[in-house]
Design a protein around this nucleic acid. Structure first.
Length: 487
RNA sequence: GCCCCCAUCGUCUAGCGGCCCAGGACGCCACCCUUUCAAGGUGGAGACCAGGGGUUCGAAUCCCCUUGGGGGCACCA
């Protein structure tokens, strides 16, 4: 097997991809990059009913956001295109026709209503659901009669009645399925579109996919695919079924579990590298201790052998922590870039001017180790930019200190700040720390009052550094206003 | 109902027969640092390795059964 690795992510455009889908994409991408192979994006839009407008764009956006660029697929083309299944219908129709000719498939004229009632009947009698094969051995006459009546048939696969199909999965090992338990599944729908099974097999073959890496929920349809490969005379790929991702309630992750769309995480301020790092650890692990992987390390270390087999619960808390880790690692300039779109609405145009940018770069060291998502940006930086702080007057009062004493302390502090030779953190500390003693209050009490006065918050970055960044003018005005509030 | 998969702290996981009366991480608790909040540091609680049988001198690791969980059984992917 010296063949080049060719893997694919093949989503159907039925909505925004959620983290589970994106995890599959990531694993495929990682494997391609690790092996120097090819990563392909293929859109499986074979269900016209379920197709959601804008979904393909959402898929593309999600992959781009995560940095999972594809080597072949929509937008970039490639030698095996087109990469959108609705544009490849003739391939599937041809394959289906070939199977019918060769006696491995047949046209089925059963109505949806009949199939429906058949299924209900089977359920009632506790029989295994599945097509009853009524049309499997139709006489040419009967078939002509259906056609005369204008019934548009589907094409079904003639599943072997006996024997078993053995699937070799890279992570599960050998999995056996009895053929008699499989029914004659549809290959081509009456609208001329293929089902997933047909399209998937035909395309994976034509596109020379070497490894089919997909979520575990596909394991049970793998025997069908294998059967198709065999009857079509195709060489099957290596199957790699990834452990499924569960919600907190341990059921398959879905919209029901809250924010699961990849783009929702982008919009709430998660970094793509953090997301990729976290997702990589869902179903894969390098060793007993490495947790944080830069992108290139992920690529370097990723291997199929270390993919796990048990389902993993998506844990937002750990993602949040990891996002904080990445945020803290970011160079200031990069953090500013990432934060810009999030804080622009609250701090306005100022963020766009060179002065505003320079100011922001002075603010950021103070918030960097406190920020866990970019969406927290506005909350954390607003008071550096926006005047007219709103806070409870009571917040100004330290425990055990009266209103008068606080007002007085602030007035004295105001004077000292006004006269301070320089307005940097060291000078400010030199001025304010002795002041506490002089006034007979604890440093924490004085600093607390000043913190609320200057930031409007009881919790904020270190006071002196904050005041330095805010600047004398702003600080004086804010302390004055606090005194007014107390008076 | 039938088929398939899975099973180590609440969660993600390491462990592929002796190094494990089970290691790391998130979360939680305490302490330290400290002007608050974080970050960081230290420590702690937390898994009788789902249960029961085997195999073996020896099992979290191999086999079987049970139980539990999940997935799949469409002219959806």
């Amino acid at each position: 097997m010296t063949q080049r690795v060719r893997v694919r992510f093949a989503p159907s455009p039925t909505g925004e991809p959620h983290v589970g889908n994106v995890r599959s994409a990531l694993f495929n991408w990682l494997y391609a990059r690790h092996t120097g192979g090819v990563f392909i994006l293929r859109i499986e839009d074979t269900d016209q009913q379920r197709e959601v407008e804008g979904a393909t764009e959402a898929i593309i956006e999600s992959l781009r956001w995560l940095g999972l660029e594809w080597d072949e697929g929509p937008g970039v083309g490639g030698p095996y295109g087109p990469y959108i299944q609705s544009q490849r219908l003739h391939h599937y129709q041809q394959a289906a026709e070939r199977l019918v000719q060769q006696g491995s498939a047949y046209r089925c004229y059963c109505s949806t209503e009949r199939l429906q009632s058949m299924r209900e009947e089977q359920q009632r009698r506790h029989q295994p659901p599945g097509y009853d094969r009524r049309c499997r051995d139709l006489t040419p006459e009967a078939e002509r009669e259906h056609q005369r009546q204008g019934v548009v048939p589907v094409v079904r696969f003639k599943t072997p009645l006996e024997g078993e199909t053995v699937c070799h999965d890279f992570v599960r090992g050998e999995v056996r399925f009895e053929n008699r338990l499989l029914d004659d599944f549809v290959l081509l729908k009456s609208d001329g579109f293929p089902t997933y099974h047909l399209a998937n097999v035909v395309d994976d073959h034509h596109m020379e996919i070497s490894h089919v890496m997909r979520a575990d929920e596909w394991l049970s349809s793998t025997p069908r695919h294998l059967l198709l490969y065999r009857t079509l005379g195709y060489e099957p790929p290596i199957f790699v079924h990834l452990p499924i991702i569960l919600g907190p309630d341990r059921s398959k992750l879905s919209k029901r579990h809250g924010a699961t769309s990849a783009l929702a995480y982008r919009d709430t301020g998660y970094l793509p590298d953090a997301m990729a790092n976290y997702l990589a650890l869902l179903g894969w692990a390098l060793d007993d201790s490495t947790e944080i992987f830069a992108r290139d390390e992920l690529v370097r270390h990723f291997s199929l052998e270390r993919i796990g087999q048990s389902p993993a619960v998506f844990n937002g808390e750990k993602l949040l922590w990891m996002n904080g880790v990445y945020l803290r690692q970011l160079p200031l300039e990069a953090l500013a870039d990432q934060l810009a779109p999030f804080i622009a609405p609250t701090i306005g145009q100022e963020s766009l001017t060179p002065e505003g940018r320079a100011y922001l770069l002075r603010v950021l060291p103070l918030v960097q180790e406190r920020i866990k998502t970019l969406a927290e940006g506005p909350e954390l930086v607003s008071y550096f930019f926006v005047d007219g702080l709103s806070y409870e007057t009571s917040d100004l009062l330290p425990k055990g200190v009266t209103r008068e004493a606080t007002a007085n302390a602030l007035m004295v502090a105001l004077e000292r700040l006004r006269r301070a030779a320089t307005f940097d953190a060291i000078a400010l500390e030199g001025v304010l720390r002795p002041l506490a003693e002089e006034l007979g209050v604890k440093t924490g009490q004085l600093f607390g009052a000043l913190r609320v006065a200057t930031t409007g918050r009881t919790a904020a970055p270190p006071l002196f550094q904050t005041m330095e960044v805010l600047g004398r003018e702003r600080c004086l005005a804010r302390v004055e206003r606090a005194i007014a509030l107390l008076g």
